[in-house]
Design a protein around this nucleic acid. Structure first.
Lengths: 279, 279
DNA sequence: CGGCCCCCATGATCCAGATCAACGCAACCG
DNA sequence: CGGTTGCGTTGATCTGGATCATGGGGGCCG
């Protein structure tokens, strides 16, 4: 007896960096035995009985899932499973068999490619609702690694294939997601090709700000759980430079560091200007 | 002076940049000798009468066209038209209505996006067989401009839509072309994000070399019709830097400048190494 | 609690490539 | 024909961000 989502999942990549706390996972996957029930399991079980997991999902209206009406969600539920990953754990690995497609439910992932000589280029950060692992060949074309404790929802590829065949709307959704990825890639090219350090940092913060929660006065507070090294890996800058740019933005009164790893954008207008042309 | 298929096409964008030297273009088409009607033209004209244009097309086995068997080619012929464009003429313009999709038949186009403040970033060069102007919104997302006298084949969008509906193979082809574009974009990100000037230039030449003709000894001779400024615009470098890097590669005996705008790669192996890690 | 480790911040210095400047050359033109 | 214009090349100089070096602070563990 399980909560309907806990078969062992061969398509999940196990942690190789930080040891991926076995207990996190155990807490979520009920493989400790049919009789042992954690509070979380009980809660999930209740939900599973009350409504399909997908229906209650935090990102139900994003990514692929948004393409299906509520009535068809159970079919998604049937081919997907949730999993928690700790910071440093990998969700997909570049070059390995692409067995599943993942939707990020919570947390943050960094997406990167590696050069033969070991240099790595981060091509993006996934935030909740983003889909990672879409591959049109048989292998993942990038590595996706959690930079904060995260939850992903994995859809077995074969199951997804079948579903896409039955639901033409998913096909269109895939196409538009792919083309959104292309747009994002081209924005990054624009950034790397012709923006300076300040413009890059502002562009990046601004992009995160769009999806970030706002404080009482409507100012976005962006969450930056990744290391400065990763941020630099994305922006084509060194961590020291990121640090200096943020300091300088703070001095100018454009941003405020609130809680650890959180930055509030105080002057969104000026910020938008900086994002495209510095000074 | 055309091969019988050049009705004026409302969806073609007329030149606005450099006045597209009529005689350059003539020189290109007639470059084997100054006759009234060249052998090539006579040949093309005869083809147009003898068989559907698409069947005899130089890029019949590339781009979208490759997805259709010979028997179905007339349907493509019906919705497409060839057109010659001179250097400096635009084929698509960023932000304008995407009325058609183009296949480059000969020549070369630069693909670029413009920042609000006028800076432009070249995101690629199209070589024969490449498709430009695929847009999933209603507008082109980039400008495509000839950097050498070129011939494009334009497919009216509405006609293409209908055709795609009737030929599911085209749908798959579109998807795979889109994903190839994404791959190319990510390669460029890798280049801009973590390669130095020499690596960038070598990576670029190597990519062109793959599709370039080879001399008697199998050495690729790449055609570089674009200005140094454009090459720099793609690689994120200034023209002076391009010039210096090429000079240094020449000094090391890796390349030889043959005819104007042509470079022969003499040591492909060393070159491949340089393309990923310089020195 | 103290020690360790990792990340961040900040100052000092360096350097790859940008920028500035000058010239050569070819195409074009009156 | 000489003048003009635009691109490419080369040299001199500048500079934004990389690199190097140091110190500080927070989390984790014994």
């Amino acid at each position: 007896m399980d909560v309907g989502e806990d078969q062992s999942m061969s398509f999940f990549v196990e942690a190789n960096g930080q040891p991926g706390r076995g207990d996190d996972r155990q807490g979520f996957l009920a493989n400790t035995g049919p009789h042992v029930q954690t509070p979380i399991q009980t809660q999930l079980q209740a939900q599973a009985q009350a409504a399909p997991r997908c229906l209650r999902c935090a990102v139900r209206n994003e990514g692929l899932c948004a393409a299906l009406p509520a009535g068809e969600l159970p079919e998604l539920t049937a081919i997907s499973r949730n999993r928690d990953v700790g910071a440093g754990e990998m969700v997909t690995i570049e070059g390995q068999d692409a067995d599943a497609v993942f939707t990020l439910v919570s947390g943050m992932l960094k997406i990167y490619k590696t050069l033969p000589d070991g240099r790595e280029q981060i091509t993006g950060f996934a935030t909740p609702g983003d889909v990672v692992g879409l591959a049109f060949g048989s292998c993942y074309v990038y590595t996706a690694e959690a930079v904060a404790p995260s939850t992903v929802c994995g859809m077995v590829r074969r199951g997804l294939h079948g579903l896409v065949d039955r639901k033409p709307r998913l096909q269109g959704r895939l196409l538009s997601m792919l083309s959104a990825e292309l747009t994002a890639a081209q924005d990054q090219i624009l950034m790397l090709g012709c923006k300076n350090a300040t413009e890059r940092v502002c562009t990046f913060l601004l992009a995160l700000a769009r999806r970030a929660p706002k404080d009482e006065q409507g100012r976005p507070v962006v969450f930056l759980p990744m290391k400065k090294l990763d941020m630099g890996g994305y922006l084509g800058l060194r961590p020291e430079t990121i640090s200096r740019v943020l300091r300088s933005l703070e001095t100018k009164g454009l941003i405020t560091r609130t809680r650890s790893a959180h930055i509030r954008i105080d002057d969104l207008d000026t910020f938008g200007d900086l994002a495209v042309a510095a000074e």
